[in-house]
């Protein structure tokens, strides 16, 4: 199964290989207390987690540090994944920006992989993956438009969906129109 193989390959990025506690995947919270806990969880450590496809819609969830990103994406490229999308999430409470990369496969060995990396909100810089996936170009430009995340080494990082002179980033939570 490609899922297991990919998981192993991705896990090799994390030398400690600390078997993460079977993360209390945000299932339906039954009580108030649990909900509060879900709202303020301990910051997640880098690593690979297997998710329930029926609930979340993807199989593998890997959080990497920005400098591991290229390696992780290369692993997926070699395993013939295609790029689905790149997007960001603004975690303003933690003062972090998250970049989320979605990958999937063309064959029937279905495996959806999410790679995420957390950046400092004040200086969001992440290496570009356009060298590996040419199709990441527009997705990265879009993410740059919406969140102001700088993709280092991107060949043409100018506004794509926003006007050419846009200097605002509308999907940041503190953006006011």
């Amino acid at each position: 199964m490609i899922c297991d193989k990919t998981k192993q390959a991705l896990q090799s990025l994390f030398p400690k290989a600390t078997p993460e506690p079977a993360e209390s995947s945000p299932a339906i919270p039954s009580s108030e207390a649990q909900e509060k806990k879900a709202k303020a969880p301990a910051p997640r450590q880098d690593g690979v987690v297997e998710r329930d496809y029926a609930v979340h819609g993807y199989h593998l969830d890997a959080q990497v540090s920005p400098d591991q990103l290229l390696e992780a994406v290369s692993i997926l490229d070699e395993a013939a994944f295609f790029i689905e999308s790149i997007t960001g999430v603004d975690w303003i409470k933690e003062n972090q920006l998250e970049v989320v990369y979605d990958f999937s496969r063309y064959d029937f060995d279905t495996c959806r992989v999410v790679i995420r990396t957390r950046l400092d909100r004040n200086n969001p810089v992440v290496p570009t993956i356009t060298g590996i996936y040419a199709g990441a170009n527009w997705h990265e430009r879009e993410t740059h438009d919406f969140f102001g995340i700088k993709f280092e080494g991107h060949p043409h990082l100018i506004p794509l969906l926003l006007p050419e002179d846009a200097d605002f980033h509308p999907l940041l939570k503190d953006f006011k129109a």
Binding site: P26, P29, A38, K39, G57, S104
Partner: peptide, 24 residues
């Protein structure tokens, strides 16, 4: 509930996906 969810469907134009990040 909080968490993130992904769903893809085949629309007339191809694989359309919605990624939903919920904070509850």
């Amino acid at each position: 509930p909080a968490g993130d969810y992904y769903q893809a469907v085949e629309t007339a134009r191809g694989s359309f996906g919605v990624r939903l990040v919920s904070d509850g």
